[in-house]
Design a protein around this nucleic acid. Sequence first.
DNA 1: CTGAAAGCGCTTACAG
DNA 2: CTGAAAGCGCTTACAG
Lengths: 337, 337
Amino acid sequence: MKHLSIKDIARLAGVAPSTVSFVVNGKHQEMRISEEMVKHIQAIIKKTGYIPNRAAASLRTGRTHVIGLIVEDIANAFFASLAKSVESVAAKVGYRVVYGSTENDDGKGNDLIQLLAKQVDGFLITPSTGMKAGVQALKKTRKPLVLIDRYFPDEEIPFALVDNYGGVSQATEYLIEKNKKNIAFVNVALDQVQMNERERAFVDVMSRRGLFHKKLLLRLPYYQDKTQYEPRIRSFLQKQPGIDAIIFATNYLGMFGIKALKDLDIAIPGKVAVLSFDDTDLFRFSSPAISVISQPVQEIAAQAMRLLLDQMNAGPKKKAADEGVLVPPQLILRNSV
Amino acid sequence: MKHLSIKDIARLAGVAPSTVSFVVNGKHQEMRISEEMVKHIQAIIKKTGYIPNRAAASLRTGRTHVIGLIVEDIANAFFASLAKSVESVAAKVGYRVVYGSTENDDGKGNDLIQLLAKQVDGFLITPSTGMKAGVQALKKTRKPLVLIDRYFPDEEIPFALVDNYGGVSQATEYLIEKNKKNIAFVNVALDQVQMNERERAFVDVMSRRGLFHKKLLLRLPYYQDKTQYEPRIRSFLQKQPGIDAIIFATNYLGMFGIKALKDLDIAIPGKVAVLSFDDTDLFRFSSPAISVISQPVQEIAAQAMRLLLDQMNAGPKKKAADEGVLVPPQLILRNSV
DNA sequence: CTGAAAGCGCTTACAG
DNA sequence: CTGAAAGCGCTTACAG
C-alpha cells in the first residue's frame, strides 16, 4: 500500500480511471454518472484514503492550485495579517499560498516573479516602483494578477487597496476641526502611489483651508533599518516647534515618531496631537492610545482574492474586467488627538 | 513560442533531452558531459529563457521542492518573523514555502497536515497539543518533519526551539537578585511543553529560594480573542496587591498585562517590575520599555531548516539523526525592571 | 452513461 | 560521453 493511484481506485471499484476522475473532480453530474456509481466510488475513496497526485494533475491541466503572494515584508504586521486573510480565503477554494518578501528591492521582487511564474496560477503582489516592468511583462503572459496595497495608475491591472486619499483627507479634516493649525505630515519618499496619495490628500486639504506650508512636510528616505527614522523625526520636531499635530504616513513612521515625541517630552495630545496610518498593537496599547487610519485587512484580502479568482476562472478567452477596488479605511479615534 | 520544453532545447542544441536534463540539474560532471557541450546548452537555455516545468519533474521524482510551514498564527509577530526567516533560507536552497495557521485548533492543524502532505517535501510545524496523533502519523510516513517553538518530549521528532526553561530561570534569578520577593508568573493553560517549561523554570527557581507561593501563579485559558486577558489579569492584580514583579509567559499576555497594570495605575517598575517572554515592537516602544526574554527567531529558523534539509537529503535509507536543538534566548533588560 | 488511449514534460536506468 | 525509451499519475477528447 505505497501510493494509491487513480488506477487502483478504478480497479477496486470495477470501473475505468476516467470515471473515478470525474467523481473526484465533481464532474459526475456533467458526465451523467449514476448516483449509485458515484456513491460506490466515493465510498472506496474514503475507505482507502486516496488522495490524487496534484503534480500529475498539474502537468496535465497546467494549473497548480497555488497562489503567489509577494509582499514588501511578510514580518510586518500589516502584511502578516494580509497573508493570514489571503491564506484563509484561498484554502476555502482549494488553493495554497506561497509567499516572498521584496523588502522594496526591485531585483528581489522581479526575481520572485520569475521564480514563481511557472509554479502559481496567479499572483497577489505589492509591487515596489521598480517592479513595474516585471509586472507588465507578467500581465502580458496573461497570468492572473492582482496588485495589493499599491498600484500603477497608468496600467490596467486589477488592484485592491485602501482608499489612501480618502483616509488621510478625513484625518486631516478631523484635526482641522479640532482647531489644529500647524499640522505636519511625515512621509517616506518611496514614490509609490499609495504614499503619494496619502501626501496629496494632506496637501490638498491643508491648501484648501489655507494652512499648508512646505515646512510641515517631512519626506524621509526608505530605510531597511527602521530605527534610523527616530533621529530624523526628532530633529524635524526640534526645528519645527510650532507644530500642534502630526500625521504619520505609515505604521513604522508612527512608531518611531511617537518615540521621538516622548524622548523630547512633547505631550501627546496636550502639545501635539498624533494620528498614524495603519493600526498596530503598539498604537492600541500605547499611552495615550494612538488614533489611526486603519486598513480593513480582511476586506482588502477578500477583494483581492475575488478579483484574482475572477481572472483565474475566466479562462484565456473571456477576459475578466480590469477592475480596481478602493476599500474605505476606518478612522479610529483614541486618546492621542 | 508558447511553452518551451526540454525537447525544444534538445532540438535547438542538437542533443538528446536527457543531455539537457543533466545540464539543467547540474549532473553534467557526474555524467561526464564535455565542458563545451555544457556551455553550448547553457547558452541556449539562457537565450530562450527556458524554465523547466516543475510539475513534470515532481511527477517523475516525487519531490515538489515545497516546504509546508504550519504555525499557530501567521499574523502573530513571532510567527511572522519566523515565516520570513524560513522563506529566506528556503529560497536559497531552491525551496518554496506554503503556510497555514492552526489557531491552536487541533482539527485545523491536522487538516492542514492532511491537505499538504502530498504536496510538500517536508514540514515545519508548531503543533498544538492535540496534533500529536497527526504528527505521529506523519512521522510514520517518513515525511521529513521538524517541530518548532514546541515539541513532544516523548516522541523522537527533531525540533528547534528556544531554551524556555533556561530563559525563564535566568529572568527569575535576575528579579530575585534585584531583591524582588513576590514575583508572579502569568501563563496560558495550553498544556504545551514550551508553556510548561517556562512555568516549571519559574516554580523551580522560586522554590529553591523559598519564595514560591501558589497564589503567585496565574494560569489563564487560551482565548482566541486576546482582549479577554486584560480583565483577567486586572482582577488577579487586585487580589494580589503584594506582588512586586511579574513575568508574563507570552507576548500577548505581556501586552494585556501591561495594559492592566497601567489601568490600575500601578507604577512600572516602581511598584511592580515587568518582564515578558518574546520581544515585540510594543515592548521596545512602551514607556517604560519592557524587559524581555527574546527568542532569536533567525537562529531558530536556520536550525529548523538545517534539520529539515538533513532529513530531506538523507533519502529514505540513511535516516537522519533525530536531533533536537535548544537555542539560547537573550535576556534584554530595559526600563521595566 | 462508461472505457481505452493519448499525452502533459520531465528523469533515469539502460544500452551503446 | 550520448541517445532512445519507459513511465510518473493524472485528464480529456473520443468512441461506443
